[in-house]
Simulated assay, not measured.
Amino acid sequence: MILLISDLHLEERRPDISRAFLGFLETRARHAEALYILGDFFEVWVGDDGMTHFQREIARALKAVSVAGTRIYLMHGNRDFMIGKAFCREAGCTLLADPHVAPLNGERVLLMHGDSLCTRDEGYMRLKRWLRNPVSLFILHNLSLTKRQQLAQKLRSSSKEETRMKASDIVDVTPDEVVKVMQRHNVHTLIHGHTHRPATHVLEVDGQVARRIVLGDWDRQGWALQVDESGFHQTPFELT
């Protein structure tokens, strides 16, 4: 059994989500071969040198599951793209590039966070290109922790306001981009998060039936996609 989750947006202000995740680790994740976390694991990340007590507690919980035998893979999201090697060492997880092709149930499956598929959101795509530029990353990493925290808060606030103002199709994936990416990687199953719209979409890629599985975000409830011999099944659960 393999589990995939995304968009937990963990932060101290949402102890219900943290409790649910820790419970998920102690139950389902401990029985899994692997756990994939496809981005926006934390609501904000300003650098490994700025890890809080809360974030270290999460890292320790992940490490315990890793030591028990579950392989843990983590992908950057748009809110936690500055997670680095120090956190991964503490958490016992492997950082994946976005996109990443993984063998699941004998099939090549493309894993992504999903933000790069939203090409109609031109303002966000410009911001992403600037933030992920190696020069920009170098500058960000060399800012003081206080400056990075202030910048993160500003970006977070403006992102929420801009998203609220945009049309729903603008902040969703671009269908043509989905097909192009799947063709490029020669896959017929794509799994991603980011859009907070859990569903399985059937489409056509190179004349064959394909599917795009969107992972749910953890807010009013939690979501996990389970991959086993019976197939791919995503189900919600209560945050307790």
Results as ranks from 00 to 15, higher is better:
I2W: 02
L3Y: 10
D7E: 04
H9Y: 11
E11R: 13
E11L: 02
R13N: 14
R13M: 06
P15R: 12
P15M: 10
I17H: 08
S18R: 10
R19I: 00
R19L: 12
A20L: 05
A20K: 10
T27P: 00
A29T: 13
R30G: 06
H31I: 00
E33M: 04
D40H: 07
F41E: 00
E43W: 11
D49T: 03
G50K: 11
M51S: 12
H53K: 14
F54H: 13
R56G: 01
E57K: 15
I58Y: 09
L62R: 05
V65W: 00
S66C: 10
V67I: 15
L74M: 13
H76T: 01
N78K: 11
R79P: 05
M82E: 15
G84I: 05
K85I: 08
T94E: 15
A102Y: 04
A102H: 08
A102D: 02
N105Y: 06
L110P: 00
L111M: 01
H113T: 03
H113N: 06
D115C: 08
R120W: 12
Y124C: 06
M125I: 09
R126P: 00
L127A: 14
R129I: 07
L131E: 06
R132C: 03
V135C: 04
H141N: 15
L145R: 14
T146A: 13
L151G: 02
L151F: 12
A152W: 05
K154R: 13
S157W: 07
E161V: 11
K166T: 05
I170Q: 05
D172T: 06
D172G: 09
D172F: 08
Q183L: 06
R184F: 08
N186W: 01
N186E: 13
T189H: 12
H192D: 03
H196A: 06
A199F: 01
H201R: 07
Q208R: 15
R211L: 00
G216C: 03
W218P: 00
G222E: 06
W223F: 15
A224K: 01
L225E: 08
Q226M: 09
Q234R: 04
P236K: 04
T240D: 13
